[in-house]
Nucleic acid binder design. Structure first.
Length: 564
RNA sequence: CGGGGUGUAGCGCAGCCUGGUUAGCGCGCAUGGUUUGGGACCAUGAGGUCGGCGGUUCAAAUCCGCCCACCCCGACCA
């Protein structure tokens, strides 16, 4: 492709709206254009990258036993009512009415439809296992699109669904997909880490996310420097410290004027934070829930939400707390009734805690579970933080951020049971299909690739997904000798099946070099009066600092080696 | 939805506070000329519903009100 013919121009300055590196570089290089919040056009250079990523994905999915199909984006609303996910997605679901006033959905994902297909086409264990996938547009009305292509409202996703006879067989499919995903990212030139992930309200046992470590990532990852275990902070567990065992003392009221927060109460009474119990009020699907956890630990709302199996969870406001008779700043489960109480198991890792007395400016000393109060649900709802200890090996936990470029998920029978996707086993018993699902966001992967492969000058494409392999640069304007040498090289490289972007513009050297660096093709070739003196061209890798002179006749061979 | 911010030419911005000719600057773009190894130079030129609607005023990019869009933080987010 000649740069004089290419659709899309590089920018001298970066549009003001971009903050993350990938967003800035995608805009500056002229690869994308924003149409609305979280909605983009992909110009030819970006489109070539996306197609290369898709191709790699197709090859790996096919190799793992996947069969490609295509399901519609436009779907009847009823199928979403059938699974109950019209509520789960809520406002995130794009809906519309057709001319007959029929309600339709622009699908955010395709579990419902694939389950529907499966129930029509799978009757017997002989029809299993199956892996089906598509590369399809999805719509999600995200509350806040962000980071360029990292979080958008219309995007392309590869989604694969596995169908098996039981959990054991699902494990095999799941492991096969994990490996296929690793292959995909490796081939795309991406370093990813696999982390344990939250499986959401739908349930299921295992879920893993593939993360590209990046400062601009949306997700926080907790990992252990000892054993290498890692998890999304939404899911991460840690070893809660146990306080020294003490004899139980009797409850004692103590005045704590003005002390409301854990810090204030602890300081006022001269006890460490871990000797107190924190009280947090939540509004859960409209009902007030009292949550308590040891004073040195924060509540993880994702864990809480999962524990309560609710769809809407938020901190209760002051009025809601008062209506329920709670005394903010001095609340505790001791003496509380008529309100659901959820506790983190950390409240059992010590004795004689300071808790609220449910009277303003008064706290209780020496509160102990279950002697002094009851809870309705005791479960891990603690937020992991860097510096805590690993639950597996006791090593130190660390924190970093990442972009989620893939998510794999054991669905189990959640969808097949609701939608009646059943098969007959060897013994003639009717059983629900055991499902898994596996997604890769293509555009987000592109963004992550740039986050991970750039320098201050621009993009540094990994060879397998680079829009072109070579940036061929003719310096020296209209000089016949240079032009004809560059043209000859262009023709030869194309003949040798290199993908070449030929900068045939009459621009100054500086402009061309800067665009070459910005656009980031793996190799740059320069033909100029200087190089032609030795009948050579200059060959430089984008990732390397230095260039080398190569005889014109050897350039193709040299490139073949360098780009391997 | 809560908080903060921005809307003036394709991109980056000034002008607004303190209303007053044909609304500026840089980049980019077009034409001609001189240049050519790290974002050259000269000349000429094209390009604007000043986000929208309404109000105040003799007069609004500028003041007031409402709305919209976009960005950032949070909430939200298989």
């Amino acid at each position: 492709m000649r740069l004089t013919k290419l659709f899309g121009k590089t920018l001298r300055e970066v549009p003001a709206e971009a903050e993350t590196v990938s967003h800035q570089l995608l805009l500056k290089s002229g690869m994308i254009h924003q149409v609305a919040a979280g909605v983009y056009s992909y110009l030819p250079l970006a489109w070539r990258v996306l197609r290369k990523i898709e191709r790699i994905i197709r090859e790996e999915m096919d190799a793992a036993g996947g069969q490609e199909l295509s399901m519609p984006v436009l779907q009847p609303f009823e199928i979403w009512e059938e699974s109950g996910r019209d509520l789960a997605f809520g406002k995130g679901l794009f809906t519309l009415l057709d001319r007959r006033e029929r309600k339709l959905v622009l699908a955010p994902t395709h579990e419902e439809l694939i389950t529907d297909l499966a129930r029509r086409n799978v009757q017997s264990y002989r029809d299993l296992p199956r892996m089906l996938y598509q590369i399809q547009t999805k719509f999600r009305d995200e509350p806040r699109p962000r980071g360029g292509l990292v979080r958008v409202r219309e995007f392309t996703m590869k989604d694969l669904y596995s169908f098996d006879v039981d959990e054991v067989a699902l494990d095999i499919s799941y492991q096969r997909m994990l490996q296929a995903y690793k292959n995909v990212y490796a081939r795309c030139g991406l370093d990813t880490v696999v982390v344990e992930a939250d499986s959401g309200a739908i349930g299921g046992k295992d879920s893993h996310e593939f993360m590209v470590i990046a400062e601009s990532g949306e997700d926080e990852i907790i990992y252990c420097n000892g054993c290498g275990w890692s998890a999304n902070v939404e899911k991460a567990t840690f070893a809660k410290t146990s306080l020294e065992c003490e004899q139980l003392l009797s409850l004692e009221e103590v005045a704590t004027p003005g002390a409301k927060t854990i810090e204030e109460v602890a300081r006022f009474l001269g006890v460490p934070k871990e000797r107190t119990l924190k009280a947090v009020f939540y509004s859960v699907d409209g009902e007030l829930v009292f949550v308590t956890i040891r004073g040195d630990i924060e509540v993880n709302e994702v864990k809480l939400k999962n524990a309560l199996k609710c769809s809407d969870l938020r901190l209760a406001n002051d009025e809601e707390g008062q209506e329920a008779g709670l005394v903010a700043g001095s609340a505790s489960a001791a003496g509380l009734s008529g309100i659901k109480v959820v506790a983190d198991d950390s409240i059992t890792l010590g004795q004689n805690f300071v808790v609220g007395a449910n009277k303003a400016d008064v706290h209780l000393k020496n509160a102990n579970y279950p002697r002094d109060f009851k809870v309705d649900l005791m479960i891990d709802i603690a937020q992991a933080v860097a510096g805590y200890q690993c639950i597996k090996c006791g090593g130190d936990l660390l924190s970093t951020r990442g972009i989620e470029v893939g998510h794999v998920f054991k669905l189990g029978t959640a969808f097949s049971e609701k939608q009646g996707a059943l098969y007959l086993d060897r013994d003639g018993n009717q059983k629900p299909l055991v499902m898994g699902c596996y997604g890769i966001g293509i555009g987000r992967l592109l963004a992550a690739a740039i986050e991970q492969n750039h320098d201050e000058k621009g993009i540094i494409w990994p060879v397998p997904i680079a829009p072109y392999h070579v940036y061929l640069c003719a310096l020296g304007g209209e000089e016949g000798e240079i032009v004809s040498a560059a043209e000859a090289l262009y023709a030869e490289l194309k003949e040798r099946k290199f993908e070449v972007l030929f900068d045939d513009r009459t621009e100054s050297a500086g402009v061309k070099f800067n665009d070459a660096d910005l656009l980031g093709m793996p190799a740059r070739i320069v033909v100029s009066r200087r190089t032609l003196k030795s009948n050579s061209a200059e060959v430089k890798l984008r990732s390397e600092k230095d260039a080398e002179l190569v005889k014109l006749g050897e350039v193709a061979n040299r490139l073949a080696i360098l780009l391997q």
